[in-house]
């Protein structure tokens, strides 16, 4: 058996790579798949705290690559969700402790035993980025509806193709932090604008919502703790990764205020 390795990347920092890795992974596991979340952000480890698994780390990615232990020994099993595991990054300063070939071999190994390897990529396009993309079959590019984020995403598309050997049809984008109130006022790029500019297919659309911060505070993936629109967006995304044909929600913003405004003709 060989699973699929997907890198979650963006170019620009702070746009939601770690959040997406955690929740997409959890949603895929809840759907019955075995999933390894691989934190490739060496020196800035964060997937562990987002998942609430920070107190259970014994070995990390660098230990595995250096042969201190097998990757199986370093995996942290999530006790809340069957089939979900984390391979934490190292908190060392030397970001170049790992070579691309080592990373590639490791991802190949994990793929032998698991359905999915989700690789949380560091921001930027340096060595850490190259290490994160080298073993990936597919890429999810996270973009927020902002000029700088879309621009960086376009750079990353080019690099995934050239340096990662990931063909365009294996690249997908996720639009994160969309605010329908601003989209309606035409003060924010909408999904079709970004699709026009980047020309890659959309895998998911996630609203901007405070529940993301609340869930990070608790160290609990949103798909576990909530049934709101953000959780639904991640379940839908997982469904699409599994090849299901899930339609996009036309109006992700169904808040009471906007419903009232619509009623009084103050919003579309």
């Amino acid at each position: 058996m060989s699973g699929k390795a997907i890198v979650i990347t963006s170019g620009k920092g702070g746009v939601g790579k770690t959040t997406t890795t955690a929740n997409l992974g959890a949603a895929l596991a809840l759907a019955g798949n075995t999933v390894v979340l691989l934190d490739a952000d060496i020196g800035l480890r964060n997937l562990d705290v987002v998942m609430g698994l920070e107190n259970r780390i014994v070995y990390d990615l660098v230990n595995v690559v250096e042969g201190v232990c097998t990757y199986n020994k370093a995996l942290i099993k999530d006790k809340r969700i069957d089939g979900l595991y984390l391979l934490p990054a190292a908190q060392i300063k030397d970001k170049d402790a790992i070579k691309p070939e080592q990373m590639k071999a490791l991802v190949e190994n994990i793929k032998e035993e698991f359905d999915f390897v989700l690789i949380d990529c560091p921001a930027g396009i340096e060595q850490g980025f190259l290490n994160a993309i080298i073993g990936a079959d597919e890429a999810i590019i996270i973009v927020t509806p902002e000029v700088s984020s879309v621009r960086d995403a376009d750079r990353v598309v080019g690099l995934l193709d050239k340096k990662g050997n990931i063909p365009l049809e294996n690249m997908h984008m996720v639009v994160n932090r969309i605010r329908m109130d601003m989209v309606r006022k035409k003060e924010m790029l909408d999904v079709s604008d970004i699709e026009d500019l980047l020309r890659i297919n959309v895998l998911g659309v996630i609203p901007d919502d405070e529940s993301v911060i609340v869930s990070t505070n608790k160290g609990e993936p949103i798909v576990l703790s909530s049934k709101n629109s953000v959780a639904q967006a991640f379940h839908d995304m997982a469904g699409r990764v599994l090849g299901e044909d899930i339609p996009f929600d036309e109006k992700p913003d169904r808040s009471f205020v906007s419903a009232v405004m619509r009623f009084f003709g103050l919003a579309q």
Binding site: E146, M188, L189, D190, L197
Partner: peptide, 20 residues
Amino acid sequence: EAGSKNAAKERLRLVLIHDR
């Protein structure tokens, strides 16, 4: 055409052409 998103899109269109 009100709103800043058209400006964003137009600027991005040009920036991406140059970047590419």
